[in-house]
């Protein structure tokens, strides 16, 4: 698309170039006529000089299209302009006598060579300057485009990494539980292997940009919760409430996972009692509002609770997707830690 616009604007430049050339030729013809020469010879002179000048301009423009002079080589550019001005002047000096050989005209021609040289130099220099600005601007635009593309890629990679922070602790402990179950409850061991595989597969195949319904997200989460319940037995209870309307609400895939992981981790490690982790979903003013609660002990809770990887990762992800920093909130009161996430429904 931008390629298309740049070729369109380059066409516009070509027309402007042709227009300037025509105006230049007409002006020169008029000036030479005003020195007392016939319209015929004035037109020939204007035409020949303008064509030569245009050729020089085209050359310098084409050169600059592929080669932008660095700061040190501006002098080369000036030398080029001088050379081209001299060449176009010499061309006129050589071609015009072949077409018209009136002695007063030839006399006028040789006297006007110096002024022709300088006007040519000015015109070519002007052209060089315009080309330089024009092409460096195009370069800059392309750079900017590339930069924003690179940023987009980096963002994708970052999202990928955030998701890949699979908790090795969880994985190894689950395998250890399976190891225990194989001995005396092989059926349960088998079921846990299936749950673990389904959970891992779900984690790997989801696309970060992809949005899923809350219902799908909760189904995936349920696999995780079932595994944790096998590990921690009666100590872990979960309450999930979500009506049909909010089940249909969309959220980025695997957004809830790290929050619930955090809630379970701090719930289970902050107390030796039984722990209830609750997840509540509501749709409110165009937002899907998710509230996750877990018990905690304000006396002993580690300070990292509020800033753990889970939460900051979720915050970062929401920022990348919605460019907003106010979508995650946490509260702690009465031994209950609450995390609230708002997902804009577009």
């Amino acid at each position: 698309m931008s390629n298309h616009t740049s070729s369109a604007s380059s066409l516009k430049l070509d027309w402007a170039f042709a227009g300037c050339g025509a105006a230049w030729g007409i002006l020169q013809t008029y000036i030479i006529h005003s020195f007392g020469f016939e319209w015929y010879i004035a037109t020939i002179d204007g035409l020949v000089s303008t064509i030569l000048l245009s050729a020089a301009c085209w050359l310098i423009n084409n050169n600059l299209r592929y080669y932008q002079p660095g700061k040190g080589s501006y002098i080369n550019l000036v030398i080029w302009c001088l050379f081209l001005a001299a060449a176009s002047m010499a061309g006129s000096r050589w071609l015009l006598p072949l077409i018209y050989s009136d002695s007063s005209y030839l006399n006028f021609l040789s006297q006007s060579l110096i002024i022709r040289f300088f006007t040519n130099f000015l015109a070519i220099g002007w052209m060089a300057m315009i080309s330089m600005v024009w092409f460096s601007q195009i370069d800059q635009k392309e750079n900017e485009k590339r930069k924003s593309e690179a940023e987009g890629l980096a963002r994708d990679a970052e999202l990928y990494n955030l998701r890949q922070q699979l908790q090795p602790h969880f994985l190894f402990n689950s395998l250890n539980s399976i190891n225990a179950l194989i001995g005396f409850k092989p059926d349960e061991a088998r079921r846990m292997i299936h749950q673990l595989s389904d959970f891992l597969r779900g984690t790997l195949k989801k696309d970060d940009q992809q949005k899923v319904t809350l219902m799908e997200e909760l189904q995936h989460l349920q696999l995780y919760l079932d595994i944790e319940k096998v590990r921690f037995g009666h100590r872990l209870n979960t309450e999930i409430s979500c009506d049909t309307a909010c089940g249909e609400a969309m959220l980025p895939s695997l957004l809830l996972q790290p929050i619930v992981e955090n809630a379970i981790k701090f719930g289970l490690y902050d107390t030796t009692e039984n722990v209830t982790v609750s997840i509540r979903g509501e749709v409110e003013d165009g937002y899907l509002v998710l509230m996750i609660q877990n018990p905690y002990d304000p006396q002993t809770s580690r300070p990292r609770q509020g800033t753990g990887f889970g939460l900051s990762g979720v915050q970062r992800r929401l920022y990348l997707l919605f460019a907003r920093n106010d979508l995650v909130e946490t509260h702690a009161s009465d031994n209950i830690f609450t995390t609230i996430i708002k997902v804009p429904q577009l």
């Binding site: 402990n173 250890n176 539980s177 190891n179 225990a180 179950l181 001995g183 005396f184 096998v230 590990r231 921690f232 037995g233 289970l268 030796t272």
Partner: peptide
Amino acid sequence: DEPLARMVLLEYLQGMPGFEVIQECGDGF
């Protein structure tokens, strides 16, 4: 703290002559 993790140790230890498990605990206290 994980019952199943204790179970593995218990099972492995049962095959060991000369070792006797006197108690299992679920937390540091």
